[in-house]
């Protein structure tokens, strides 16, 4: 009984914390974006190349921008509390719909990038650790550092030049061939071909990080007593590496990956721009430039919720991979 209560208390405490953070994000960003010069009416007028005072007054009235700021905030908060993220000024669509349109693409992109990063990063890191001090280790370490030091948008541009323009192996941009009439597996393959370059470019940066983390953690863990004990028990090297060393070494990698969720969305801004990937990062960037306040706030709220959820998930994974808990349970 007490265990359940404690758990409920723990979960609700976390929930309250999360709500406080999200509330702060809304309020602070609300004022932040309002302080930026220009407003959506002016942007729409400016891009039109023709607009008079009436045109802008009409828009400002329609958007409610002629109301006092605190009133706008109150109205907005009221809507958000009911799950309504408002209406996009520029696109004239509900923000939830815009985000729902874009979110799956970003999740696909970042999810794939993350999977690539974790798989390659852990594999390379393990290899580097196993051959620590030798040629393979040096190569992997140098390569990781090199990737880590390269601007991702630059890498993306170079990759496009090589694979799409010079070699013509992969599609240039977008996420699927328009109106191809493809279904099922063929459609998946089509999307997959579009996905390779952006996902790898986005993932590479993190491959470097995870490889370094894994390597460092493994070197640390393999000197620990329980590993020595395992070796002394005569367990095979492979078994020792995978079951004992790697499993422990993964902890810092996993917790770091949890912290990266926000970065992935942010980093996706550049990659989505370079590869014309219709994701949420680009939506956010365009919202900043267009002063589409509601869209920007909406994206920030949704991504924040995602990051918080992701962190919670990380904690669960943490518990699962932690052998100390695993062995007792």
């Amino acid at each position: 009984m007490t265990g359940v209560l404690a758990r409920v208390a723990f979960v609700s405490r976390r929930l309250v914390k999360a709500i406080v953070v999200i509330f702060a994000i809304i309020v602070l960003n609300f004022f932040l974006v309002r302080m930026t010069p220009g407003d959506p009416a002016l942007v729409i007028a400016g891009e039109a190349g023709a607009a008079d005072q009436k045109f802008m007054d009409d828009l400002r009235h329609e958007f409610g921008l002629d109301q006092p700021l605190w009133k706008q905030l109150a109205v907005y908060l009221g809507h958000v509390a009911q799950g309504d993220l408002g209406f996009s000024y520029r696109q004239r669509l509900p923000v939830t719909q815009l985000i729902a349109d874009r979110l799956p693409q970003t999740l696909l992109l970042t999810g794939t990038a993350m999977a690539i990063a974790l798989a390659l990063g852990i594999a390379f890191g393990t290899m580097a650790a196993m051959y620590a001090g030798r040629m393979a280790d040096t190569m992997i370490t140098v390569l990781a550092l090199l990737v880590f030091a390269t601007p991702s948008f630059w890498l993306g541009l170079m990759a496009i030049l090589l694979f799409s323009v010079k070699l013509d192996w992969l599609p240039l941009f977008g996420m699927a061939t328009v109106d191809s009439g493809l279904h099922g597996l063929a459609l998946a393959a089509d999307i997959g071909r579009h996905l390779i370059l952006p996902a790898v470019t986005l993932g590479l940066f993190f491959v470097a990080i995870y490889a370094r983390l894994t390597r460092a953690a493994m070197l640390e863990v393999r000197e620990l007593d329980f590993v020595r004990t395992a070796r002394a028990k005569g367990l095979g090297e492979r078994r020792v590496v995978v079951r004992h060393i790697l499993r422990n070494a993964l902890l810092p990698v996993v917790s770091y990956a949890g912290l990266q969720a926000g970065y992935l969305v942010g980093g996706a801004v550049l990659i989505e721009t370079v590869f014309a990937w219709p994701g949420i990062g680009r939506l956010a960037y365009e919202a900043v430039v267009g002063r589409d306040y509601t869209v920007l706030l909406g994206v920030l709220i949704i991504t924040s919720i995602m990051v918080i959820a992701f962190n919670a998930l990380t904690d669960i994974v943490y518990v699962l991979v932690d052998p100390r808990i695993g062995s007792t349970g």
Binding site: V21, I22, I25, N29, L32, V33, M35, T36, P37, L259, G262, Y263, V265, G266, G267, V269, L270, G281, A284, Y285, V288, V289, L296, V299, L300, T303, S304, V307, I308
Partner: peptide, 16 residues
């Protein structure tokens, strides 16, 4: 600060 996508915040700040 960890929850907000850092790069988006960066763009907002520089635009501001």
């Amino acid at each position: 600060f960890q929850t907000i996508p850092g790069f988006v915040l960066l763009i907002v700040l520089v635009a501001l």
